[in-house]
């Protein structure tokens, strides 16, 4: 044991440091968390309106098969017979033969729905496990409705603190969003979801499932609107703040 005098001096110094450090830390932490209100877990998501479907999502994800996958927003889909997200641009025939398919992994599934006034309609679904998130179909679909777009699938995403795809994204389309928001839909999809939701509610009557679906669609759209508005507000504020410093 060292002599008592040294212990006192050292101990006092250490105690002082510890106490002040502790207060500073807790204070700063409380301030940081309190500033934006109690926010819960955040996850990564990409804004499909910014996405250029460059293909980096497929290869830069730390997972062997990327957590980013294609989504088809059916309420935006034209159910086209010549789907540019499905068929190669130099297709031989309009059937599901592999050489006609745009998707290199065959992850887009085409299913006949019905024929109306001479036009045949098809449903296009994404086979999740096959999709690697390369975005080829997204580019194709962009020639038409753009109902296909990429999203981070959160049942696969490991939610890295620093998302490797976000860093590698040439369009800087990745955002940290609140976990309960889950998705970022296209701006144009928000209205589509709302309309579908309202229609479901109108038709619901006695069907609780329809009502529930309609309500959840409207809730999804509301969250999206809120996020877009907040994003626009921040962008404006940030640019306003930075401008004087920049010049």
């Amino acid at each position: 044991m060292p002599e008592a005098g040294r212990t006192d001096r050292r101990g006092f110094l250490a105690d002082a440091l510890r106490t002040s450090g502790g207060f500073a830390l807790v204070g700063a932490g409380g301030f940081l968390v309190g500033r934006r209100g109690q926010e819960e877990l955040q996850v990564w998501q990409l804004d499909p309106d910014k996405c250029t479907a460059c293909g980096n999502c497929a290869t830069y994800c730390v997972l062997d098969v990327s957590a980013v996958k294609c989504v088809n927003c059916f309420d935006m889909c034209g159910f086209c017979d010549i789907c540019t997200g499905y068929f190669e641009t130099n297709y031989w025939s309009l059937d599901t033969a592999a050489e006609n398919q745009l998707c290199p992994t065959g992850a887009v599934i085409r299913r006949f729905v019905e024929e109306q006034s001479g036009q045949r309609f098809y449903e296009y679904t994404i086979d999740g496990p096959l999709c690697i998130g390369c975005g080829k179909c997204v580019k194709g679909c962009a020639l038409m409705n753009g109902s296909m777009y990429l999203q981070v699938e959160h049942d696969r995403c490991v939610n890295c603190n620093e998302c490797a795809i976000a860093t590698a994204c040439p369009a800087e389309a990745f955002y940290r969003i609140p976990a309960n928001q889950v998705e970022i839909v296209k701006q144009s999809a928000i209205g589509v979801l709302e309309r579908r939701g309202r229609q479901q509610l109108r038709e619901a009557d006695e069907d609780p499932q329809l009502r529930e679906e309609g309500e959840s669609l409207l809730a999804r759209a509301a969250v999206q609107r809120q996020w877009r508005a907040r994003q626009a507000g921040w962008d404006a504020r940030q640019q306003g703040e930075e401008a004087p410093r920049g010049s």
Partner: peptide
């Protein structure tokens, strides 16, 4: 605003319900 007429309506199917893509929740 998104231009109303640019939003593309889905065909009116007779007995096909247009599916809804729901993103998987954060686990």
């Amino acid at each position: 605003p998104a231009r109303a007429s640019d939003i593309i309506p889905v065909p009116d199917f007779t007995d096909y319900r247009v599916p809804i893509s729901v993103p998987p929740a954060v686990e």
